[in-house]
Design a protein around this nucleic acid. Structure first.
Length: 279
DNA sequence: CCTTGAACCTGCGGGC
DNA sequence: TGCCCGCAGGTTCAAG
């Protein structure tokens, strides 16, 4: 799935295309995403105006009139595709939103780990999906001091802690690996045992890699595409992610000797790191 | 409370 | 060519 930079990119594309438009119709072709679609969603959305589109964690939030917000999550394989003409539904096109300026937006998600909900705008922070979430990594409050306190009692590896959305949101498998590389931290290190200097490197590393990825329009792997159909290109800048046996970014080692980037499994997920630089 | 592992679902690429 | 396996950007739930 799309991690924070990809979701941010999608939100910006949707905001540009949809702000102030009115929903004329929702074609809900599949009701069994990660959670069942809300009752009568199509009827409830008809005629509603889009006020604002933004992101929280990896969720796309679309504020509508009448103080309700449409919540979308892309799961692992979700995409939003904007079209300027009536489209013919393709495989895994689960939701097709039509708007009054002849734009359609299709939510396509082969694995169906994505989700769509509608909730009261004023009560979003109490919503089941949001109430447990940690800080935004690009926000002001996300500081080394704050992160130190949050990780203090954690025995899990730092890699797992970065993926824990109760600590900090938006970081997924790619950007956890990348940020730890730039911070020169071994992913196996216990989160609570990190040294002050390490956390001092980690926070800016996270912010830097997320910002750079947003600038690049996100990472397009197998099936992720920006809302406007353009491909993001950050995958061409990965330092370690998906680079087993290859040199890490800026590597001066003899890869024949060191073996280059290594892959291990943590919490059932692949971690890529440089055993030379990340200690 | 904490941590770990499995589950959800589909598609793709590699090895034989 | 086809089959089988492992792997894929996330989140949640059960079990220890």
């Amino acid at each position: 799935m799309p991690e924070l930079p990809e979701v941010e990119t999608v939100c910006r594309g949707l905001a540009k295309a949809l702000t102030n438009a009115r929903i004329t119709k929702l074609d809900a072709r599949r009701l069994d995403l990660r959670a069942p679609l809300p009752e009568n969603l199509s009827a409830r959305l008809k005629g509603r105006r889009v006020l604002k589109i933004y992101r929280r964690a990896k969720y796309i939030l679309i504020d509508l009139d009448k103080k309700e917000t449409l919540i979308l999550h892309l799961g692992m394989s979700g995409r939003m595709v904007i079209a300027h003409a009536r489209i013919k539904a393709k495989k895994h096109d689960h939701l097709i939103f039509y708007f009054d300026h002849d734009v359609s937006v299709t939510f396509n998600d082969p694995r169906r780990f994505g989700l769509c909900d509608l909730a009261a705008t004023d009560a979003l922070h109490n919503h089941k999906l949001f109430s447990h979430l940690g800080l935004e990594p690009l926000g002001k409050e996300f500081t080394p001091l704050w992160l130190t306190e949050k990780l203090r009692s954690k025995k899990t590896p730092i890699k797992a802690a970065l993926l824990d959305q109760r600590v900090v949101v938006g970081i997924g498998n790619i950007y956890a690996c990348e940020a730890m590389f730039y911070a020169r931290i071994n992913p196996k290190r216990s989160a609570g045992a990190l040294k002050r200097e390490q956390i001092n490197r980690l926070v800016p590393a996270i912010r830097k890699v997320l910002r750079a990825a947003i600038t690049a329009g996100g990472s397009s792997l197998r099936d992720y595409v920006q809302a406007d159909g353009e491909l993001g290109y950050f995958q061409n800048h990965f330092a370690v992610y998906d680079r087993v046996g290859k040199p890490c970014k800026g590597c001066t080692c003899d890869v024949k000797k060191t073996g280059g980037v290594k892959r291990i499994t943590q919490g059932g997920r692949s971690t890529f790191y440089c055993p030379v630089k990340q200690i």
